[in-house]
Amino acid sequence: MNIEVTMKEETAVLRPEGWLDTETAPALGEALDALPADVKAIELDCEKLAYVSSAGLRQIVAAYKKVNGALTLRHVSDEIRHVLTMTGLASRLTIEP
């Protein structure tokens, strides 16, 4: 799975592409681990994300914890938003269009 990582000052912008399922979630985990230690915020651009399963959601929660909640999700599709709602994550995460 392709994850594009760019730094915008102290914010890391991650752009995963494709399906975030049990097989591909570890790649996101690796990308998060590879971020510099002084990163203050993480932005997850979900424009190219087609699907997310619970394994992927675990990584999202891990990212949230890594930056103490300074996690913003952008360009979230309706389906993924639905999944976030069903798992109760939507109320905790910052989701911007």
Binding site: S54, L57, R58, T87, G88, L89
Partner: peptide
Amino acid sequence: AFDLLDNGGMGLGL
């Protein structure tokens, strides 16, 4: 709980 969710447990709920 939310804090433990990075260890899993969301699947069956879904």
